[in-house]
Design a protein around this nucleic acid. Structure first.
Length: 103
DNA sequence: ACGTTGACCTTCG
DNA sequence: TCGAAGGCCAACG
């Protein structure tokens, strides 16, 4: 098939994340072929369509926390979704064992 | 076509 | 151990 766009690749990588697991932007970027382009991953996800079914909530920063401010509705919503997925939250942060280093 | 921004990561102090 | 600064690429205005 033709070369997928950067966004498409990122979508595939995020979609490859197993349920109950999360992945950091750097890891997603690496799997997407963008080794040091974690920023681009976030920017791309932000521009995602509202109807996207991508588990973008499984993508977190290297600090093991969500990239949104704690007072942001998206933060609470994402956290709630992760809990539903079975993610273990520790002090507003995600357990290291919850990271899916493998697609 | 250029400049600025960005849901970040890594390293130095 | 914690805090701050720099740097990578791509897309938007």
């Amino acid at each position: 098939m033709k070369e997928l766009n950067k966004q498409q690749i990122i979508w595939q990588v995020i979609a490859s994340i197993p349920k109950g697991k999360v992945c950091s932007y750097g890891q997603v970027a690496s799997l997407a072929g963008l080794a040091n382009h974690a920023r681009y991953v976030g920017s791309t996800l932000k521009k995602l369509p509202s109807g996207t079914q991508l588990p973008w909530h499984r993508v977190v920063n290297a600090k093991g926390e969500l990239s949104f401010p704690p007072n942001s509705p998206a933060y609470q919503e994402q956290k709630k979704r992760l809990e539903t997925e079975g993610i273990c939250f520790i002090k507003e942060k995600i357990a290291l064992a919850t990271y899916a280093w493998k697609p």
